[in-house]
Amino acid sequence: MELNGVMVYSEDVELELQLLGKGAELAAKLGSDLSALLMGSDVKDAKTLIEHGADKVYIADHPKLAQFAVEPYRTGILEAVKKASPEIILLGATKRGKELAPRVAAALDTGCMTECIALDVDDERRLLAERLTYGGSCIAKEMSRKRPHIATIPPRTFQKPEPSKRDGKVIKLYFEIPVSKIAIVERKEKSRGEGGLEEAPIIVAAGRGLRQKEDLQLLEELANVLGAKVGCTRPIAADSGWLDEWIGISGLKVRPRLYIACGISGTVQHAAGIRDAQIIVSINNDEAANIFELSDYGVVGDLYKAIPALTKALKSGLK
């Protein structure tokens, strides 16, 4: 069967709109159409997807799809793929998307390029991608040579297109929805903390140089003066549980104008999360710490003395 067109899907509609932005660009280069998939129960976003560029919206709407589960959702994608025969499938790289995409790829016996930060097509309609590799220290340029090409894309990698009044086709999918073999016995919403790190213009971040949770207060005082958000490295969030989210290859990727790293050693995994910061400043008592290689300005010294002094100096300097 002739494969043609670009299809996008994410269970996170905001991310799906961003995929439509990139998808439209690829579809235009290939001279083909752009479709989006919508799954859930009582879904409402078909119009939004069309306004953001989808020519066709495939809908799998059923009470059994109310909650995400990998088996039924994977089957939904495969149904849509059967109907639309796309040559490129772009999927959102949320945690759920990341478990979904390789299953879809395996079912279609094709490749998958995960967490792509750049995408293009070549003259032979092959999909080209850039993605982080070696713990985030390097960028790999990869080419998919088997169709359908599949790529996953992290949130906020591409811009959501401007909506416009346009027409599109809505196509309902009917298929036998498999019952998930996984039973969810407990579900607890996470406390989202104050969030907003990804858009924060200034971030003060804690690393393992901090001795105890109470010491985050020092960083908060500095953050207050700067109108900044407080973030941290993976051990501080995942091991110590002082904050909910962390910055790094496996967590949030941030792009502030100013990033102040306090007691952070600067592993390649953390570095990959702060690469897009405009100015990086670091305070660490180990002069050999890798963070100084990644910084614009560094202070070697005790952060328990340096941070209050910096807070005070900025407070008077910014008046």
Partner: peptide, 17 residues
């Protein structure tokens, strides 16, 4: 399916002061 064309470290332009 996937061919790796190139792997390289991005240029990090930092002042390192």
């Amino acid at each position: 399916s996937i061919e790796i064309l190139k792997v390289e470290a991005p240029l990090v332009e930092r002042k390192r002061i």
